[in-house]
Nucleic acid binder design. Structure first.
Lengths: 350, 350
DNA sequence: TTGAAAGCGCTAACAA
DNA sequence: TTGTTAGCGCTTTCAA
């Protein structure tokens, strides 16, 4: 157990050697030539006194803190931010780094964002992870460019910083494919109305997947509303009242799917027997708890956090060059999470 | 914008003064007697050069890092941890501190917990917040006692560390009272089966609230299952088939309430017309998105995070004594969040 | 194989 | 009113 009052000097005195020697053995310095006995003695006394290094002093001297700054949006709203943090934390500690976290609001002013980064800079973090709550384009605080940085779940408008984002289109394809594989031919899409990459890319994925299956993507039914439970309910109601009612429904996210479940129940359509549903996001609280359990596509938040951290540390340690990564965002797969909301279409309806 | 290569010395040279003077004006040292002109000149040059203090060097010298360590369990599972972090972060930055976060697992071994605290100690954080995911009793890593610490959402078995927990019994009373106020007299409770404080305290609150309303708390129907959606469903099914079927139902948490919604729908009982329901936790993803919206009791995670941080900083700054707080946990209220799941009991059933 | 000493950037006691 | 200097705990160059 670390005793804050014990320094390298105390260990040196107690072991009857110099501080240099202590430093050398405790840090396993490669070129140090120290006898095994001294080595042992030093280690033993350090242990006995409960010595723990003062990372501040080390950092001041080596110009390396071993700390990564993470500025994260809306940490408290969903578990998404938590997954990013978890991925980053695990990747960081695996390589001996720790995380300093600063929460920010998606609506924060430019000055306040700058101040957040500033605080991290003053603490001399070795690099910065900048995470947003959902995939979008951001304008970055200018002081961010002064040290290695990676964006998580967003793309820089200027295109000057490395970033990692989910494969929205691929995720949509996977979702639609799961419906196609079950035999569905009449497939509808409940889309979001916000102007974000996910809205455009998931729609593209939806259409392309249908086209490639020999269906007419452009003609497939799409209903758009706010991407919340209520929006999903309203959109689903419209969708289910169409004369060409689909047998398979792809929803922009799990919340909209939850609304679709309610709409289906009210209209008297049973899931999955009369309507198969697939969502997006894998918000476990919803997806796993709906009845029947919602098959959905997971966003790789943990993976994005871990990936960004790995690359950031690589850059810090001179093992990689972030500028080449900055050219375009790195795209991570969105895997399908299978539950019980998809089945073969009812014979008469297929 | 901070330029890492600029130090206090550079500012001193550029302004034609000594480093002492620079340090004094930039830190607004009380006893320093410096002419307004010099003061202005120093500030201007510091600004011009883009000087930002090196907090590491400051910390090494002053023995104060201005950093708080937060070890949090299961950061990625629910938004609960996020709320604690948010409360802590906002309270911390309001007083000039930042947060170092380490994620841990509820199932982590004692050694790994010690290692987490150790990492924080080596970084010389000024104090530590130790947060668990749900209210329970914990055995703490022993090295935690070497610096100021506060537990969030848990109580120390040894009873030696200050802690803050939710008022489980009070929250249950508030929930039951909301049912009583609506006119319900036959009220049931869907309880959890885990042996945690919440299970015992919410049951006590339930019984006491009924007793005080002149009803028989001991005789009131209680069904217990795992505190998940499925458990709620199963327990609710039993509850709703009783001959003395209640008109008001208090659920251990929102997930169990979600299960109760499904059970009610299957049995053909409408909420809130034939059954009023109140939950616990205010997991927004669930409570706000059920139909009808679930009236529930909120856990004060944000408040606990903020309270713990305030007290921790008070202790660090010598403004408070944590040992007096350690005597017994501080209890924070759980407020009712009203939505649409409660109404007056059906006349024939009241 | 080991040790002395400079210096990372800052604060604060002391001197002028 | 301002400046000189020691030292926070460590790493690392250089010398022995």
């Amino acid at each position: 157990m670390t005793n804050k009052s014990i320094g390298i000097k105390d260990v040196a005195v107690a072991a009857g050697v110099s501080v240099t020697t202590v430093s050398h053995v405790l840090n396993d310095v490669a070129y140090a030539r120290i006898s095994p006995e001294t080595r042992e003695k030093v280690k033993a006394t350090a242990e006995r006194l409960g010595y723990g290094p003062n990372r501040l002093a080390q950092a001041l001297r080596t110009q390396r803190t071993g700390m990564l700054g993470l500025v994260s949006e809306e940490i408290a709203t969903t578990p998404h931010a938590g997954r990013i943090i978890l991925g980053a934390d695990e990747a960081a500690r695996a390589r001996g780094y720790n995380l300093m976290i600063i929460n920010t609001s998606g609506a924060a002013s430019d000055e306040s964002r700058q101040a957040d980064v500033e605080a991290l800079l003053e603490r001399r973090v070795d690099g910065i992870l900048y995470a947003t709550m959902y995939h979008r384009e951001v304008t970055l605080p200018e002081n961010l460019s002064s040290i290695p940085a990676v964006l998580v779940d967003s793309e820089s408008l200027a295109g000057s910083v490395a970033s990692v984002v989910p494969d929205e289109e691929g995720g949509a394809r996977v979702a639609v494919q799961s419906l196609l594989d079950a035999g569905h031919r009449r497939i509808g899409f409940l889309n979001n109305t916000d102007d974000v990459p996910a809205t455009r890319d998931r729609l593209r994925g939806f259409r392309n997947a249908l086209d490639e299956a020999g269906l007419d993507g452009a003609a497939a039914p799409v209903e758009s509303e706010l991407s919340e439970v209520l929006g999903g309910y309203v959109a689903a109601l419209r969708m289910l009242k169409r004369k060409d009612r689909p047998t398979g429904l792809f929803c922009y996210n799990d919340r909209m799917a939850m609304g679709a479940y309610r709409a289906a129940a009210e209209v008297g359509i049973s899931i999955p027997n009369e309507l198969s549903v697939v969502g997006f996001d894998d918000q476990e609280l919803i997806a796993a708890n709906l009845y029947p359990g919602l098959t959905t596509v997971a966003l790789p938040h943990y993976e994005m956090g871990a990936w960004a951290t790995e690359r950031l540390i690589d850059a810090i340690e001179g093992k990689a060059d972030l500028t080449v990564l900055a050219a375009k965002p790195t795209i991570l797969q969105c895997p399908l999470v299978t539950r019980e909301s998809i089945t073969n279409p009812h014979p008469g309806l297929s």
